[in-house]
């Protein structure tokens, strides 16, 4: 420390006598030694003050007071700066943890779109943040039945993701491709009601497709109503259902409904992120999506989904406000 003080005094004295660039440069290089010796900001000022007192004999009292003041201020400044830095470090740790979690979630919730004969299926699911609160679960027994669950956890981010893992586990455990949709929702409701926080709800549209008879059977727990397009009548039907979200009450009964799909009919399953247009008033988002889907129904199901997603992104000025999931099945 004493050596540092002596060296600093020489560097400062040189500069006071000759204010050239080379002396300034030497001064800046001195910082390295200060850092090595772990010298705090307030000590640097103290070193400077002492050196100045020795170089200039009749340093005014007021200047000395001013340096003492600066030392005092710097003690606090140094502390606050350290706290700020440790907060930044914590933030970085959290960011890394979050990325790992998102990767695990992606692996966990990975789903393969089935590719049966005579039925075309497409899907786009994009999370708003790193973790997705929407989930699509397909199951195909490679025989007669195919099932599709479209799920939305009310809430976003990590809590939603944790809840979703449980929903997936539930689906994996109890579900077979030929299960009745109403039964699946009733069982899942029991599971979620028992094991999830009271503030957490899940909406789900569970459907089963019979590849032999082309009967689409669906049940909905408070989910965004699917759209069914009847190509012979050239009209859309909203597959409305007023039943309760999952996880609110135990022992809820759900109803199920059948639709027979004919050639060129299609069904759009989605989460409320697709129809969420808070910013635009006097605008019917479901009508807009109906028209959008009609305009691109010559495309295959996957292309339709992507097309609708892109158009909605533009409409939202690339600032979607919710997790976005759309599934189209097309006969």
């Amino acid at each position: 420390m004493e050596q540092l003080k002596r060296d600093y005094k020489i560097i400062l004295s040189n500069y006071i006598h000759n204010q050239n660039e080379s002396n300034l440069y030497t001064g800046q290089n001195f910082i390295k030694r200060l850092i090595q010796k772990n010298v705090s900001p307030e000590e640097v000022i103290s070193i400077h003050k002492q050196a100045l007192e020795e170089i200039i004999e009749d340093l005014p009292e007021s200047t000395i007071h001013a340096y003492d003041f600066l030392i005092e201020v710097m003690v606090h400044f140094g502390l606050k700066l350290k706290e700020h830095q440790s907060l930044l470090m914590k933030q970085e740790e959290l960011r890394i943890e979050m990325e790992v979690a998102a990767r695990i979630q992606n692996t966990l919730l990975e789903t393969t779109i089935p590719n049966p004969e005579n039925l075309d299926i497409g899907m786009v699911s994009v999370p708003l943040r790193k973790m997705n609160g929407d989930y699509v679960h397909f199951m195909h027994d490679h025989k007669r039945y195919l099932s599709i669950a479209v799920t939305d956890v009310v809430g976003k981010g990590v809590p939603a993701a944790l809840c979703m893992s449980m929903v997936k586990y539930g689906l994996d455990t109890l579900e077979y491709a030929n299960s009745n949709p109403s039964y699946v929702l009733e069982a899942l409701n029991q599971l979620i009601e028992k094991s999830v926080d009271d503030s957490m709800f899940v909406s789900m549209c569970y459907s089963r497709y019979d590849l032999e008879t082309d009967i689409f059977t669906w049940s909905s727990a408070g989910h965004e109503p699917p759209l069914y397009y009847d190509s012979r009548e050239k009209v859309y039907y909203d597959l409305e259902s007023k039943e309760l979200l999952l996880g609110i009450l135990p022992e809820v009964k759900y109803s199920q409904h059948d639709i027979k799909l004919n050639e060129n009919d299609f069904i759009i399953l989605m989460t409320d992120g697709v129809t969420d247009f808070r910013k635009q008033e006097n605008f019917d988002p479901r009508q807009y999506i109906k028209e959008l889907a009609l305009s691109c129904r010559h495309l295959n199901a996957q292309e339709m989904c992507e097309n609708i997603y892109k158009k909605l992104q533009v409409l939202h000025n690339y600032e979607l406000e919710d997790d976005f999931t759309i599934v189209i099945i097309k006969k």
């Binding site: 705090s40 307030e42 103290s46 003050k49 003492d68 030392i71 005092e72 003690v75 606090h76 502390l79």
Partner: peptide
């Protein structure tokens, strides 16, 4: 204590 440590103790 020197000025710097006085400031630290006071803080």
């Amino acid at each position: 204590f020197n000025k710097v440590d006085q400031a630290r103790i006071t803080t």
